[in-house]
Design a protein around this nucleic acid. Structure first.
Length: 411
RNA sequence: GGCCCUAUCGUCUAUCGGUUAGGACACAUCCUUUUCAAGGAUGGAAGCGGAGUUCGACUCUCCGUAGGGUCACCA
């Protein structure tokens, strides 16, 4: 590679970090890392009304959580002088002009009587997209579009082109929804004498109805998935697989492996539906990769709000016995377990298992687990024993025996 | 509606002219008695339609059709 790769992270702080944005930035990250390039984070906050610090924070924190890092941080709101310089130059060159708007001044919507418009050369613009091949546009339909509200207030298309040029951005990997923005940005590039970066428009992440993923499809913010307890490694892994794959049957990757395997040429053309079921599976696979103590930490964290952790379990007598096993047998096994637990040896787990193996694991373990948790899904009984401690465990085992006895009497 | 993009199992995808069209998720059935939202096995499940090009098309071309994106003094 003769030229150093430079990519940008250009989120707009008008909302929380969207998983679609995260995926796009991830691709930029993987590509840059793979080629030893540089990444510039550029907060696109030229819209003063909609941009909020809290959103910028959410985006920054989300990326940090995911492990998607960058080398430089900047905000468009802090680059006013640069835009002003280019705007003035375009005005001088005649590639842009002050336009007296004939429409009435609309103060409410911040519309002006005078704006800066781009002098559209009205031509065909052709560009090569790494993902889609050649794309051609007739820019006549764009007319003389507005590039700034004033010398001090540049608009998106203009600011983006100036920044990409000034920062030496070599590759622009962005969402497919930007394809139609590309021609006008190329026009501005040509007007200011900027070189053209390589474009790669990646497919969108879709909701169940195949339309662009948005709030109405459910959770779209990375922070929401973080709160749901997903591992950042799993999130990165799954996102990478949406719209890209290495061409092999490997599906579980670490960030390092993704960097190693990433290839722009293998990016998909069509949009991909976000499937949380598959995310869950990827998450599970990543949990398996974690060291035992980390897994245990995760387990404790995940069950800390369960009913059996915050209060005493309420038992349904019909659920205590395992399958064909009877209530009488369940009571007998529970009494046996209670006896073993009360002795409180350090290897209580092994002792219980040994007993369970002789009389049928399920016959002992199901009633035991149910007695301890009162839930149809919970960690295994031995683990519960450890988590709850001797006192609590004995109390719950005792309670289950009482419940069984009462049922016996009344029937 | 104009312009642009896309099109293989329900979903994510492999295939880069010749395959019994492969894998994963999900689903179903069975096994597994540390239940399950664990583990194992098995199974059903796909090339949008029509023309071409070719000895041969999922793969290349064109036309349809369908879906999506975009049309701001937002980004």
């Amino acid at each position: 590679m003769s030229e150093k790769v430079i990519v940008r992270f250009p989120p707009s702080p008008t909302g929380n970090l969207h998983i679609g944005t995260a995926r796009t930035l991830l691709f930029n990250y993987l590509f840059a890392k793979k080629h030893g390039g540089k990444i510039v984070f550029r907060s696109e906050d030229t819209d003063r009304e909609r941009s909020k610090k809290e959103f910028e924070d959410n985006i920054v924190e989300g990326l940090e959580w995911l492990g998607i890092n960058y080398d430089e941080f900047t905000r468009q709101s802090e680059r006013g002088e640069i835009y002003k310089k280019y705007l003035q130059k375009m005005l001088d060159d005649g590639t842009a002009y002050l336009s007296q708007e004939s429409i009435l001044k609309d103060v409410e919507n911040n519309n002006r009587e005078e704006v800066i418009r781009f002098k559209n050369p009205n031509k065909m613009v052709k560009f090569d997209d790494v993902v889609r091949g050649e794309i051609e546009f007739d820019t006549t339909e764009l007319h003389d579009f507005v590039i700034a509200k004033s010398l001090e207030e540049p608009l998106y298309h203009f600011a983006v082109v100036v920044d990409d040029y000034e920062m030496g951005v070599t590759h622009i990997l962005r969402g497919e929804d930007h394809i139609s923005n590309t021609p006008r940005q190329i026009l501005i590039q040509e007007a200011i004498g900027a070189s053209r970066p390589v474009y790669a428009h990646i497919p969108l992440i879709l909701g169940q109805d195949r339309s662009k993923l948005s709030k109405r499809h459910g959770a779209t913010a990375v922070s929401e998935y973080r709160n749901k307890g997903y591992l950042p490694e799993a999130m990165v892994n799954y996102l990478a697989l949406l719209g890209w794959n290495p061409g092999t049957e490997k599906e579980i990757f670490t960030m390092e492996e993704l960097i190693q395997e990433f290839d722009l040429g293998k990016i998909q053309k069509g949009g991909a539906i976000f499937d949380e079921k598959k995310l869950q599976w990827v998450n599970k696979e990543h949990i398996k990769l974690l060291p035992p103590d980390k897994q245990r930490e995760l387990l404790l964290e995940s069950i800390k709000d369960e009913s059996y952790m915050v209060g005493e379990p309420v038992l349904d007598v019909e659920q205590i016995a395992w399958k064909k096993s009877t209530k009488e047998e369940a009571r007998m096994h529970l009494e046996k377990v209670r006896e073993m637990v009360s002795k409180g040896t350090f290897d209580i787990g092994e002792v219980v298992m040994k007993y369970a193996e002789t009389v049928g694991k399920g016959n002992v373990l199901w009633p035991m687990r149910y007695a301890l948790s009162g839930a149809t899904a919970s960690p295994d009984p031995i683990t519960l024993l450890e988590i709850l401690g001797k006192e609590k465990s004995l109390k719950r085992l005792e309670n289950a025996i009482i419940v069984l006895n009462e049922a016996q009497v009344s029937s």
